[in-house]
Design a protein around this nucleic acid. Structure first.
Length: 921
RNA sequence: GCUCGGGUGGUGGAAUAGGUAGACACGCAGGACUUAAAAUCCUGUGGACAGAAAUGUCCGUACGGGUUCGAUUCCCGUCCCGAGCACCA
């Protein structure tokens, strides 16, 4: 019988789905294990071979854990709200509901072909009202809570109001951005609007004025993680900084907990490091400077991590956006400053970031007084100081800060060195080392001593106090978009009011035009009756990360109409034990969902404060793009190695028209009408394409569809091959060379179960030591490798074992049956088929993982006389005094021998001279 | 610039509480079976040198040092590649 993968795979896929083989339920008698994939955004392009990489790995692990007796939750769903569907809707008029549904269907078809063990009864789609009800619900909870720094958790806003009623806000330790300090009496006197405005500054979900990333081309604001190098992540359009009133989440309140929680997570160091950088904790000091513009005197605060350099401050710098600029610009400088501010405004965020070498700035005309020396120091404005970090103003120490140094040199400001013997003739000395000088009471101390000493002095003189700053900003939560969750918010006399929980979900209305309105308002603004009890509803929608922030909780209890997740389900499933997905979510989703989860934890809706215990980042599978070279202004294409003699344009060509870099000329002509009359200049009768490794994407024509591979080799081969390609976490280009090897192996595996005539043949003979050794070595290896996510090396082990068993012509049930179980996580279809052919009832998923017995693999242990014949050079370790020809007797723990024509010879001895030492002879 | 990874045959990659480097696979070369092809199987395959051959010797894990009886593995320095952050005071 031949290995007919098409038939086998179809048969078992339909068996699994109709029999609901992978349905899971709460079962207190078994330990739980939760294996989660980052759910995909269903794009119009469908899955390419890179997408399933992580899914295959998680499926292997989930099946393995199931075999190990765990009750495994392994769900899948779709992150269905998002920009691309809406962009597509704008271009084509197709409603996103419709295209999203189509894409989901396509994704599902493709995934089904790969034989995943998902419990599809738990599928969720973030655009489904029964799901986003709970996204809106969480938002309402955040609106109604504030962050108490004393208890380090979120608490109901009513309790804050109680505090205001009794004592005002002076003593309240809260994460907030309220500028006013008021007494209880003042609080009582405020109007309702005033009270609401104040409370808004304390809510965890709040509406606030802030500098946002505004993307004009997309017509929406974007979160920091959606912007890269001044361009939008989606589409690559320019992004500018703009002050706008937006919904935000007070993620910054959780900065310390988000940072500290990382220590308890089993994530890769690099990912943790990325999150640490993103949170950007820095310990320093806030220091006050008296500043005068000639007529008025103010107290201005700056933040520094180098309080020790206080005596090197020779000027101050304000961010152009800082409110101090207005106050400190003297009349004589007004024109100049305004001109500078106008100049800064014309620069896009991207320009400001890429043109960092350009030194710009302007003097305000004001002076600050140095708190220790009393000297007057000028206050400047420059774009190199950022409004959003610290206080938007800095004390500049040109001798010991690179940026300040460059600025000082450019504008000819004084530089005072503070470290003995440091060379600052061409650049600043930024290292935190050396002995202080020119620094009054700090002189003679090392930098490490001077930092705390300076802070102590600052605090003693009441010039400032210790402060920890975080780079992490609050998340901007509104998008001027249609295809997202509507906010359960309406406006009454300019006050934001929440819809009652009982009215959720607030469903997204169907609309017919997806363009933003003329005035730049979101599409919902044009929707008739977008009101609640006659009051206008919020017209922006929630961002992409809203729906993905708690989906892992919903999988635990996906159909519950009364709660996001019941306490019972949450208590059983707890948290995600293994989360697999790409690094691209390091500073987005993985921060937001940790924040979201911590918030729900504070409110006791979930029992774990960290959602994802272990996280593995699968690498990206890149595409191998092919190129043709068109001679400029012609329709003639020249082969790769001849292209240097012509002036050519490089054009991407569909990789499916190329075999081993040779272009199929007819297929190329048929590919695109533009090329139907193409002429070719060949080399050796062939057209050779150029190539490059790039991101796999439709626009590069380098997409390899898993369906094609499945049709040709079967899903089991694809699954094993993707794992065989290399370490899971490593990025690697897709290369179909080598897939034959894996396919050959599976055929060989199949043939192991048949006799020479091709009849199924399995006997009940008792296996001998050799066969048992092969099996148990393999059990050991598979177990070890799966636990270490080293899926590629397991496959080698399978290949070796199967070859050995084939050589022994082994058809023993006791060996072959466990072998089927071992391979089932990798190649589930072939395993199911063989499992039933062996007379077992389906499915192998319900079998248990074979037990490793070291007795079967153990090598001999005995005392052995060993002659070292002068090759022994281990006297020191052994504590022996040996002459070269001496023969010694050692207690040997293990001896490895090797057969050769003359008999056996010793290759390796493991001795115990107090400590185990490996010796190779 | 800073942080974190990484550099091993023609290729993807094995092997690190330090102990036979190159598992396994691809590719390539040769062979068997076949009218032929496909499929399958076998043999060889890091480099250099010696030998008819079995085999042996030397060199080899980016480069230069160090620790060690022994280093792909540990330490120091240099170079290169990848990823992330990037005026964060």
């Amino acid at each position: 019988m031949e290995y007919n993968f098409t038939e086998i795979e179809q048969k078992w896929q339909s068996y699994w789905s109709s029999g609901k083989t992978f349905r899971v339920r709460i079962d207190p008698s078994r330990p739980k294990y939760y294996v989660l994939d980052m759910f995909p955004y269903p794009s119009g392009a469908g899955l390419h071979v890179g997408h399933p990489l992580g899914y295959i790995a998680s499926d292997i692990y989930a099946r393995y854990k199931k075999l190990k007796g765990y009750n495994v939750l392994h769900p899948m769903g779709y992150d269905a709200f998002g920009l691309p569907a809406e962009q597509y809707a704008i271009q084509t008029g197709q409603p996103p509901q419709k295209t999203t549904e189509q894409n989901i269907r396509r994704y599902r078809e493709q995934m089904d072909k790969l034989g995943f063990s998902y419990d599809w009864d738990r599928e969720i789609q973030t655009c489904d009202p029964s799901y986003y009800k709970w996204t809106q619900w969480a938002f309402l909870k955040m609106f109604h809570h504030w962050y108490n720094k004393d208890s380090s958790k979120a608490e109901p806003i009513d309790r804050l109001i109680d505090a205001f009623n009794v004592q005002g806000n002076g003593q309240v330790q809260a994460a907030h951005h309220c500028q006013k300090i008021f007494s209880a009496r003042e609080w009582h006197a405020f109007s309702e609007k005033e009270k609401e405005d104040i409370l808004m500054c304390y809510r965890i979900a709040y509406l606030g004025e802030t500098t946002v990333n505004w993307c004009a081309a997309l017509g929406t604001v974007l979160a920091n993680d959606e912007v890269k190098e001044g361009l939008s992540l989606r589409g690559g359009y320019p992004v500018e900084q703009k002050k706008m009133k937006q919904w935000q989440l007070r993620v910054s309140a959780y900065a310390e907990r988000l940072l500290e929680g990382l220590d308890r997570l089993d994530w890769s160091d690099s990912l943790k490091e990325m999150q640490r950088n993103w949170i950007g904790k820095s310990d320093g000091t806030e220091m006050e400077f008296r500043v005068s513009n000639g007529s008025e005197t103010f107290s201005m605060t700056v933040f520094t991590t180098r309080a020790d350099t206080i005596f090197g401050v020779t000027f101050m710098v304000l961010a152009p956006e800082s409110e101090w600029v207005e106050k400190l610009t003297v009349p004589g400088k007004r024109k100049e400053v305004e001109k500078y501010l106008a100049y800064v405004k014309t620069k896009t965020e991207r320009e400001r970031m890429t043109q960092t070498h350009r030194v710009t700035g302007v003097f305000t005309g004001s002076y600050a007084t140095h708190p220790f020396t009393g000297k007057e120091i000028p206050v400047w404005v420059s774009e190199y100081v950022m409004a959003g970090y610290g206080t938007g103003a800095i004390m500049a120490v040109p001798a010991h800060d690179r940026r300040d140094y460059i600025f000082a040199k450019h504008f000819d400001l004084p530089v005072i060195p503070l470290i003995e013997g440091c060379d600052i003739s061409s650049e600043s000395f930024d290292a935190k080392e050396g002995v202080m000088c020119n620094s009054d009471f700090l002189n003679g101390m090392t930098v490490q001593e001077a930092i705390p000493a300076a802070i102590r002095e600052v605090e003693k003189r009441k010039l400032g106090k210790r402060k920890t700053n975080y780079r992490l900003r609050d998340a901007i939560f509104s998008r001027q978009r249609y295809w997202g969750e509507p906010f359960p918010i309406y406006y009454q006399d300019g006050i934001a009011r929440t819809l009652p929980e009982s009215s959720l979900p607030l469903e997204l209305p169907a609309i017919d035009s997806f363009h933003p309105s003329e005035s730049g308002e979101p599409p919902l603004a044009r929707t008739k009756n977008w009101t609640y009890q006659g009051y206008p509803l919020e017209t922006s929608t929630m961002p992409g990360f809203a729906g993905s922030s708690a989906y892992y909780l919903r999988y635990m209890d996906p159909h519950n109409p009364h709660a996001l997740v019941s306490a019972q389900a949450n208590k059983y499933w707890q948290d995600v034990d293994l989360y697999i997905g790409g690094t691209e979510h390091a500073t987005g989703h993985l921060i937001y969902s940790r924040f979201w989860n911590k918030f729900l934890y504070d409110l006791r809706y979930v029992c774990k404060d960290e959602p994802f215990r272990k996280l593995v980042n699968q690498g990206m599978i890149q595409g191998r793009s092919s190129f043709v070279y068109r001679i400029k202004n012609t329709n003639t294409f020249v082969s790769c190695n001849l292209k240097d003699s012509y002036e050519t344009t490089e054009i991407h060509v569909d990789v499916n028209l190329v075999t081993g870099d040779r272009l199929d000329l007819d297929a190329f002509r048929a590919w695109n009408p533009e090329y139907k009359d193409a002429e070719f200049i060949l080399e050796n009768g062939e057209y050779i394409c150029g190539w490059a490794i790039e991101k796999m994407s439709k626009s590069m024509f380098n997409v390899v569809n898993p369906d094609t591979i499945c049709a040709r080799y079967g899903a089991d081969t694809l699954r094993m091959y993707e794992m065989f390609l290399g370490p899971l976490e490593q990025s690697k280009p897709w290369d179909t060379n080598g897939i034959d090897g894996v396919h050959r192996f599976l055929r060989k595996f199949w043939r192991l179960f048949f006799d020479k005539d091709g009849n199924l043949y399995v006997n009940n003979h008792v296996p001998d030591g050799k066969e048992l050794k092969i099996l148990h070595n393999l059990i050991h290896k598979v177990e070890e490798d799966i636990e270490n996510f080293s899926f590629n090396t397991t496959i080698s082990a399978f290949m070796i074992s199967v070859n050995e068993l084939a050589d022994l012509d082994c058809h023993k049930r006791e060996i072959l049956e466990p072998l089927v179980i071992l391979i089932s996580p990798y190649a589930p279809h072939i395993a199911e088929e063989l499992w039933t052919l062996l007379g077992n009832s389906p499915s192998v998923a319900n079998a248990s993982f074979p037990v490793f017995n070291p007795e079967h693999t153990k090598e001999q242990t005995f005392e052995y006389p060993v002659s070292f014949n002068g090759k022994l050079r281990f006297k020191k370790q052994l504590g022996l005094n040996l002459e070269s020809e001496e023969i010694i007797r050692l207690v040997v723990e293990d001896v490895r021998t090797e057969k050769y024509s003359g008999g056996e010879k010793i290759k390796k001895v493991i001795v115990i001279p107090g400590k185990i030492i490996n010796i190779v002879i």
